[in-house]
Design a protein around this nucleic acid. Structure first.
Lengths: 188, 188
DNA sequence: TTGTAAATCACCCGAAAGTATGAGGGCTGA
DNA sequence: TCAGCCCTCATACTTTCGGGTGATTTACAA
């Protein structure tokens, strides 16, 4: 069992995943990069393992006479790898997370240049693209009819969108929707 | 060191996790499914490793015989005690708890930094104090009825004011009035 | 395959908004 | 004093808005 062999073994998971999953052969390089970044620990493991075996081999040929110190040798190995196991577990074990919600007061300040709607707020409220579009035109002061004309939709569609929008924003009127939209950073 | 033994070692992390975490014994099957789906990598690792060792063993007995027996033995010891270390750590280490603070954003209406409506624009457009007052409440999203209530006036009065306001601002709807009011510096 | 969500459109009804017109009282500057 | 403006309120009418319900198509995920 040579050292390259061990290293090969240690790399197996990554390789296996690569060949099993990687149907798109053009993306191998990208995939490899992902492997390198994601499986950093596995790679470190492999290198460490290899180095250790190398060290042991060296020690074996340098100082130890196998017949004499076999038990010591095995004991050392056992000790070393027990330690390795402990270290690895401590390093890798995912801590049980306790989530504490801390309320943070956020003052909304609208950036004047290059406005982009707050994606997070949009997702949280479940506001769709169309609805945001309608909201924007609302804030420009257009009536539902004008919005329908502008978007090449029927008046009823705009009404549906606005109704859904009001519910998601928890408001009753378009003026409130515009006001809240600005406050939440959905509108410029 | 038999092959089933090696396989057992390789399954150790999953098994250990199962028995250490699985306090709810009724959910073992569900837990196993989760293990299967989540720890796909680990399983692939285990199977690959096992297969490779099997292959090596076979080669060893077939062609190489004794020469590599020692390395395999040491490797097995290493693995065994790595597993032991992992198991020991999982068993003995006090459960790591990590407190995660999640910021929950609470939106606050920004403190008014002493806004003053543009007097010049007001005079130019001939907008009276009452009308401006109505416009401000409009921009807050209030309905005519609510504005009337707030100002202790009748609904009709508010309608009059808003109508006059719209004419002076040259707009057709309250949303446009709010938009234009902000644009002209009449509103914050 | 089934289910879910978005987007589209329709119809009805009541509420709110907006238009038009008029009227009475108060304040002010010419 | 009186014209002009503001504020108030009213009636009548039209338009727009918003709620409720439901159908259809598309797309995407389970």
């Amino acid at each position: 069992m040579s050292i390259p062999g061990i290293c090969l073994i240690l790399r197996l998971p990554a390789i296996a995943e690569f060949y099993l999953i990687g149907e798109n052969y053009e993306r191998r390089n990208l995939f490899m990069l992902k492997i390198l970044s994601k499986n950093r620990l596995v790679i470190i493991y492999g290198i460490s393992f290899g180095s250790l075996v190398l060290l042991l081999k060296w020690l074996e040929y340098r100082f130890l006479i196998i017949d004499y110190a076999f038990e010591v040798y095995v004991g050392a190995i056992a000790l070393l790898f027990t330690g390795l196991g402990v270290w690895l577990t401590l390093k890798l074990s995912s801590p049980k997370t306790e989530t504490v919600f801390v309320e943070k007061q956020v003052y909304i300040t609208k950036p004047e240049t290059g406005f982009l709607p707050d994606e997070k707020a949009l997702v949280e409220l479940g506001i769709s693209r169309r609805e945001l579009e309608v909201l924007e035109l609302m804030s420009a002061g257009l009536s539902n009819g004008e919005i329908a004309e502008r978007l090449f939709l029927s008046l009823n569609t705009i009404k549906s969108h606005s109704s859904n929008l009001f519910e998601k924003l928890d408001v009753k009127r378009r003026t409130q929707a515009v006001e809240k939209g600005k406050r939440l950073g959905l509108l410029a």
